[in-house]
């Protein structure tokens, strides 16, 4: 446990008090950020309090969800983890919103909280770590201008995970040459998009999506992914990892 003393001494007269009574002057301030690392000891009674909860969770979190042939890594603008995740959202979304047209899925970059999932057996706990937030999957129909605005925002953020049918070129923080199923978006007026409710509700500066009607599955994305991987595992199929670059970068 390392103590870092950062700030020494402060001079603060509490000037407001005009009476002749005594006052408490804040004479000095010292601060430290105490890092809780492996040199800090853990209290045994607290450990005992946590233990039954931990045991339940460990059992649940260690359940396998199939095998990964390669390590998945998060990155911008493209990453195999981002592609894998967005493709699962699209596949699962097609199943959840049956008979509704769907063009592509996307996930806000900040919603994915793991930098990597190691190759080998994926576990339920990995998906919880990847997606700890209780975001639900929504389907929304947006016009071309809104799609452009959305992709510009993604581009300005360095690129968010998008599913296979969507591609664009990132140039000077803008999205150009946008294509859906290899067709320029200029050919169409509306687009059917799968996205987290957090974004649909205006999160991460997507305020322009707030007023647009949406179908909310009311299913947590985390649970959707876990169920999808469980089904694949039952069929003995490993989840596909597509490494094509969906976002091209032009300087």
């Amino acid at each position: 446990m390392k103590k870092i003393w950062l700030l020494s001494g402060i001079f603060l007269f509490l000037t407001a008090c005009k009476s002749k009574q005594y006052v408490q002057h804040l004479a000095k301030a010292e601060t430290a950020h105490i890092k809780l690392d492996t040199t800090a000891t853990a209290d045994a009674a607290i450990e005992a309090m946590i233990s039954p909860y931990r045991t339940t969770l460990q059992r649940e979190m260690s359940l396998p969800l199939g095998e990964l042939a390669t390590t998945l890594k998060k990155g911008k603008p493209n990453s195999n983890l981002g592609n894998w995740f967005a493709d699962i959202l699209e596949e699962a979304g097609r199943f959840i919103f049956q008979n509704k047209p769907i063009d592509f899925a996307f996930q806000n970059y900040g919603g994915l909280r793991l930098n990597a999932i190691d190759k080998g057996t994926i576990k339920v706990g990995d998906i919880y770590s990847l997606m700890p937030f209780d975001n639900t999957l929504c389907l929304m129909t947006i016009d071309r201008a809104t799609l452009q605005q959305l992709l510009n925002l993604m581009a300005a953020n360095g690129g968010w995970p998008i599913s296979k049918p969507l591609s664009y070129t990132l140039q000077e923080e803008q999205a150009i040459d946008i294509q859906v199923n290899k067709m320029s978006i200029a050919e169409r007026d509306s687009f059917h998009v799968l996205l987290p409710d957090y974004i649909a509700n205006g999160g991460d500066d997507c305020f322009f999506l707030k007023a647009i009607p949406r179908h909310n599955s009311h299913l947590y994305i985390r649970d959707i992914v876990i169920e999808y991987l469980t089904k694949l595992q039952e069929q003995g199929i490993s989840s596909p990892v597509d490494t094509t670059r969906r976002i091209l970068v032009k300087k």
Binding site: T15, Q21, Y22, V23, L26, A27, K28, H33, L36
Partner: peptide
């Protein structure tokens, strides 16, 4: 992973008089 800590020293004295007060550093 961090816990913040402040140690503040208060001096009870007359308004405008503080023996231990130090400038901010």
């Amino acid at each position: 992973v961090w816990m913040g800590r402040f140690d503040l020293l208060f001096e009870k004295n007359k308004p405008g008089r503080c023996l231990n007060c130090q400038p901010l550093l």
